[in-house]
Design a protein around this nucleic acid. Structure first.
Length: 675
DNA sequence: GTGCACGTAAACAGTA
DNA sequence: TTACTGTTTACGTGCA
């Protein structure tokens, strides 16, 4: 008995699932673009990188030549002019250090680390090699530059004691300038190269941590990975510190060779970092202060261990920890560098979080809209779906007002909210409560509702928060011909809802009961036997009744439309005025909009009609459907002779799928009363 | 408290 | 005879 009938209800599930995966990617791309948006050329590829590489080598050679010349001059002339003492540091420092320092991982780079997963191992290796070559060059440059500076300083000192000729001084100064310009140029080239690498998906790597890039390519970074990253970064820093005679090379922030602590801190805060409120450069002062406030709760101290990133020094007690903190993690270049890295880690995490949030939002949105998209496709279903959708939408919207507050069940909100699934789920758990919610006051289920939660209902044995009447109507409307045999209705129930795979006797009885009870369900004798159809007119009639006597309802409905998204005011107004136009456009156009519009229209229609219906059936505001169809469809109990009447109804219903009838149906009692 | 809507159960009849 | 289909009635529940 319960077999077959697989035709009409297409699984919206597939459509639901295929929809939107691309969105995230787009988002990511967009964010990446933002991150990089420093005016780089977009077309950086391996060729460009090589070019940059060659250029860098040339620049390096030039620098070496300059240095040699300088050294020769120094040897020949002895001491240099002291005059340039003042200017030199000023010139050197910013240019040299800032430019030459291997870059601390920038937020963009971190972001890429977190996101990148595209490159093939071969690509990665090539890029890594390039990167490492660059790093080597950087180191060479640094060493070279440091030596030069030391020599210059020595020279200057010597010159201070022994006078020099201004000529030589000028020469040296110009050479310095030229050299710095060369360095600057090199640095720019390097940066370009780095940017190109970034574009290719590889982050820039710090010298001394070649392994780093390999890890990050795994998808999202988990905290441990981040920690690992942190350790590597910090270790790299410290290594450089120890190796380099001059500590300042590490960090952009640690620019001045002779810079003082304050200047460093100020430099440390780059715009990015400051945004995070990370100004919390941990000065000893602060620490102690915070410590005073919270005696033994120091964020950097726990379980007897210093939690300074990469430290993990064991501290017997808090005092020793403080000691350790002040001694080992005082305000120096290393600490600031670490601090900066930490800032970036945090920033990256925040970025990741934001991104994930975006992703979630996109997913929610997609799941929401999704149901409508598939329906747009031209299939038997589509017709149905459009109808049902409109219905659903209408249902949702209307009821949502009066109902929403009271009824938790209604998966009401196809349009408005996000994870309808969740909503429904939660609602389902309510179980017993469900019934009231669905129809009456509210709207009967909408196909959209069902579609949106389709997967959930299919798999979870949760009672759908819809009335039998709503479900039956839905099933019928989803069928290509908008008519189903009882058995097909059964099948639809079992197919769509796991809940109805049990207790068949009970719910089947209920289905039959509803079919018979509600006038909106019309039994038609067909060639193949008896089929059930939905009489929308009945719905129309009924709806008003429920609402009837409640003038505020109309208001509510209209206001409810506002909830319903992006329908513009004009549209709503037009709908309010005349349901027909809206109806047409809505149904024809964008599915979502159509649903919404139809829903609204229904609502309005219902309300209007309702108001009008009290007086007479033929109200001006009525939809064509209504006008066309005889109001009384089912009034007379089904005599075989009357079969014709219902049939006509059926046809009409089919013709105007969009017509939402949301109003439901079912309250037979109402109908009867009206009739 | 009442009316309404809904769900559930059951009885009954008709039909294949 | 059985199972399905369809109708009807009764009862309970929740809500306005």
């Amino acid at each position: 008995m319960m077999q077959e009938s697989g035709t009409e209800t297409k699984s919206n599930g597939a459509a639901i699932q295929n929809g939107s995966s691309g969105g995230n990617h787009l988002l990511q791309c967009a964010s990446l673009r933002e991150g990089r948006s420093n005016g780089e050329t977009p077309a950086a590829d391996a060729g460009a990188a090589e070019l940059v590489h060659v250029q860098q080598q040339q620049a390096l050679q030039v620098a070496r030549q300059l240095l040699l010349q300088q050294q020769q001059q120094q040897q020949v002339s002895g001491l240099k002019s002291p005059k340039r003492n003042d200017k030199q540091p000023a010139l050197q420092v910013p240019v040299s250090v800032a430019m030459m320092t291997p870059q601390v991982i920038t937020p963009q780079q971190m972001q890429q680390i977190l996101q990148q997963q595209v490159l093939s191992p071969q690509q990665l290796q090539v890029l890594l090699q390039q990167q490492q070559a660059l790093m080597l060059q950087q180191q060479q440059l640094q060493e070279f530059y440091k030596k030069q500076q030391e020599q210059l300083q020595l020279q200057l000192l010597q010159q201070q004691h022994a006078g020099k000729q201004p000529k030589e001084q000028q020469q040296v100064a110009t050479q310095q300038l030229a050299f710095q310009q060369q360095l600057l140029q090199m640095q720019q080239l390097q940066q370009q190269h780095l940017l190109s690498l970034q574009r290719q998906g590889l982050l820039t790597i710090q010298p001394g941590q070649p392994a780093l890039p390999l890890q990050p390519l795994a998808q999202g970074m988990i905290p441990t990975e981040l920690q690992q990253l942190w350790k590597e970064v910090t270790s790299a820093h410290s290594a450089e510190e120890t190796t380099g005679s001059n500590h300042s090379s590490l960090d952009l922030t640690t620019t001045c060779v002779s810079s003082s602590a304050p200047s460093k801190t100020s430099l440390i805060m780059n715009p990015h970092a400051s945004t995070n409120g990370q100004l919390s450069v941990h000065t000893p002062k602060r620490e102690s202060l915070s410590h005073e406030e919270h005696p033994h709760s120091h964020p950097l101290y726990g379980h007897g261990v210093c939690k300074w990133p990469g430290c993990e020094a064991v501290c017997e007690d808090f005092q020793s920890f403080l000691k350790h903190l002040n001694s080992e993690h005082a305000l120096d270049d290393r600490s600031t560098a670490q601090c900066r890295v930490q800032m970036q880690v945090v920033q990256q995490l925040e970025l990741q979080l934001a991104k994930d949030k975006e992703r979630l939002q996109a997913m929610m949105t997609h799941l929401h809209v999704k149901s409508t998209e598939p329906k747009a496709t031209p299939q038997p279903l589509n017709l149905v779906s459009s109808v049902t959708l409109s219905k659903s939408a209408s249902e949702a919207s209307p009821q949502s007002l009066p109902h929403t507050p009271t009824t938790p069940t209604a998966p009401i909100t196809p349009v408005t909210q996000g994870p309808s699934v969740i909503t429904t789920t939660s609602m389902h758990t309510v179980g017993p409560i469900r019934r009231r919610y669905s129809d009456k006051y509210n709207v009967p289920i909408s196909s959209a509702d069902i579609a949106q939660n389709q997967e959930f209902y299919k798999n979870a044995e949760v009672r759908p928060p819809f009335t039998y009447a709503s479900l039956i109507r839905q099933a019928i409307l989803e069928s290509p011909e908008k008519q189903l045999t009882l058995n097909e209705i059964y099948n639809w129930f079992t197919r769509m809802f796991a809940y109805f795979r049990r207790n068949a006797a009970t719910w089947k009885n209920a289905v039959r009961h509803n079919l018979s009870l509600h006038k909106c369900f019309v039994r038609v004798e067909n060639v193949k036997g008896a089929v059930w159809t939905v009489d929308e007119v009945e719905f129309q009639k009924r709806r008003p009744q429920k609402i009837s006597g409640n003038p505020s309802l109309i208001k509510n409905m209209q206001s409810s439309h506002a909830y319903c998204t992006p329908l513009n005011a004009a549209l709503q107004a037009s709908m309010a005025e005349n349901s027909i136009p809206l109806y047409t456009t809505a149904s024809m156009g964008n599915p979502t909009l159509g649903n919404l519009a139809s829903a609204i229209r229904e609502e309005l229609n219902g309300a209007m009609e309702h108001t009008n219906s009290n007086e007479s059936d033929s109200s001006p505001g009525r939809s064509p459907m209504q006008a066309v169809h005889p109001v009384h469809v089912k009034e007379e109990p089904l005599d075989p002779e009357e079969a014709e009447g219902p049939l006509s109804l059926v046809t009409t219903a089919n013709h105007s799928p969009d017509f939402d009838h949301d109003r439901d149906y079912e309250d037979e009692p109402v109908n009867e009363d009206m009739e």
